[in-house]
Simulated scan of single mutants.
Amino acid sequence: MPTPDDDLGELIVRAARSLRGRWREVLEPWDLSPHQARALMVVGRSGDGLRLSGLAEALRIAPRSATEVVDGLAARELVERVPDPTDRRAVLVRATDTGARVMAEVAAARAADARAALARIPADERAELARLLRRFVDG
């Protein structure tokens, strides 16, 4: 017999799927996949850049997959590979000026979409939902 917690888990999964579907639509103007957008965000937040292994770890993907994502972003001149100043054998990935601009535009569009998606929930309840989800995620 299902418990209320089973229903809650399913609701969380359904909410995540709903937002993920909206996320794909939000990204259409930039012709980015959710995976590319996440990678661009991680690289952009890294400041001076990060190694492919660090990107793979942050995205929880295989290093080979990180290379493929970076190749796609580099082909569009959203990121660039540069020598690591602390290790001449290593390469860092960092956002280009275009990549930083796209990252800011995507972040603004995603935030606006999230506000629209959650608008029917009163502000005090959204704040409570955020508090509870942070507690759940941070464990």
Rank of each mutant, 00 (worst) to 15 (best):
L118I: 00
A16R: 09
T3R: 13
A104P: 06
A74F: 03
R101P: 08
L8H: 06
R101H: 12
L32H: 02
G9V: 06
W23A: 14
E80P: 12
T98F: 10
F136N: 10
T98P: 06
G139C: 09
R110D: 11
M103P: 01
P63K: 13
I61Y: 07
R134Y: 06
L8F: 14
D31P: 01
R94P: 06
E10S: 14
V91T: 15
A108Q: 04
L50K: 15
E77P: 00
R126I: 03
A130F: 13
R64Q: 12
I61N: 07
D87C: 04
L73P: 03
G139V: 05
T98C: 09
R134C: 09
D48V: 06
A16T: 10
R22Q: 10
A16G: 06
R17F: 04
W23D: 14
L19D: 06
L78I: 02
E80R: 08
G44V: 04
A75C: 09
A123C: 00
M103Y: 04
L11M: 09
L50E: 15
D124K: 00
D87L: 01
A119T: 01
E105D: 03
R89I: 01
D87G: 00
E28W: 07
W23T: 12
R120T: 07
L59A: 10
R120G: 07
A16K: 08
D124P: 04
L19N: 09
R81T: 14
T96M: 02
A112R: 00
S65T: 09
V42Y: 05
R24S: 10
F136I: 05
L132N: 01
L92C: 07
R38Q: 12
R64V: 13
R120V: 08
D7K: 09
H35K: 12
D7M: 04
R51C: 03
A130I: 08
E68S: 05
R20D: 12
G54T: 11
M41K: 11
V106W: 04
L50Q: 15
L59R: 08
R64Y: 11
L27P: 00
R76H: 14
M103V: 01
L19V: 13
D97F: 08
R110V: 15
P85I: 11
V137T: 10
A58D: 05
P4W: 04
A15C: 05
S65W: 02
T96F: 03
T3I: 08
A112S: 05
G99C: 12
E105L: 08
S53G: 11
R60W: 00
M103N: 10
L11V: 05
L133C: 10
D113S: 15
G21C: 03
T96I: 11
E25S: 15
G72Q: 13
D84K: 01
L55T: 12
L19F: 07
A119C: 00
R134D: 13
A58E: 07
P85Y: 15
D124H: 04
P2S: 04
A123Y: 00
R76G: 12
A58P: 05
D48Y: 05
W30H: 14
L78A: 04
